[in-house]
Design a binder for these strands. Structure first.
Lengths: 111, 111
DNA sequence: ATCTTAGGCAACTAGAAGGTTGCCTATCCC
DNA sequence: GGGATAGGCAACCTTCTAGTTGCCTAAGAT
């Protein structure tokens, strides 16, 4: 049996996604190429430190990962967690659909 | 032409989802049956006002909707917004997959 | 009429989040 | 070695957030 892990809520991941700047960062990293902090900062409208903080929040949620190369730190997406988040949403949506369906059928029955 | 709406970021929806208590509320409402605030408060560990606030955050993100019946206000899920959020995630994930694919193919080409 | 139950509103608090700036370190380039 | 470039760390400020409590109003139930 595949050892069901502890309930493990998706809330922190959603929280990490709940910010414009961070979504933008993810989009930039979505290009596939690992990017440096300076690169990510350019044209962002906020300071380098600000970007660093956001990246760390994303890393905390497991959505990105960094590695050093020389004087720069390169950031890239971590796909596993995002997939999990997507599955969570799908599941919520599904549960939801089922519920609505049940309700609709119930109503129709009564007609 | 279907009048492309302004970019409309999913961030607020994710932010609303980024909280345990709110996820729990959504789960409860996922039952399909509209529930009153008292009902949702029972056994939640936080106060009625706390629950009310969370519900309003969810409503602000368009995820739930309320209606009054007599002395109680009944809350239920609003599905459209959740679907939008799901699509956003799918899109990020997709962009990602494409990028990784491109990268992989690039690497293989060089081999 | 009055008691009880369901909620709304407002004020307040503690702590987290988003952002800044200043300064220090490491690396690269000449 | 010495200047430019890339970041890290820490302190700080302000705004938002999660939660509380107290008190008031509106329905229902008797």
């Amino acid at each position: 049996m595949p050892q069901r892990r502890r309930t493990e809520t998706p809330a922190p991941v959603f929280a990490a996604l709940g910010d414009e700047n961070r979504l933008r960062l993810l989009a930039q990293l979505g290009g596939g190429e690992p990017l440096s902090i300076s690169r990510l900062t350019a044209g962002s409208g906020i300071s380098r430190q600000g970007i660093t903080k956001h990246l760390r929040v994303l890393a905390g949620a497991g959505l990105v990962r960094s590695s050093r190369r020389g004087k720069e730190s390169l950031w890239q997406l971590e796909r596993r967690r995002l997939e999990e988040a997507r599955r969570s949403l799908d599941q919520i949506a599904l549960q939801w659909d089922v519920a609505l369906d049940k309700l609709r059928r119930f109503v129709e029955e009564k007609t």
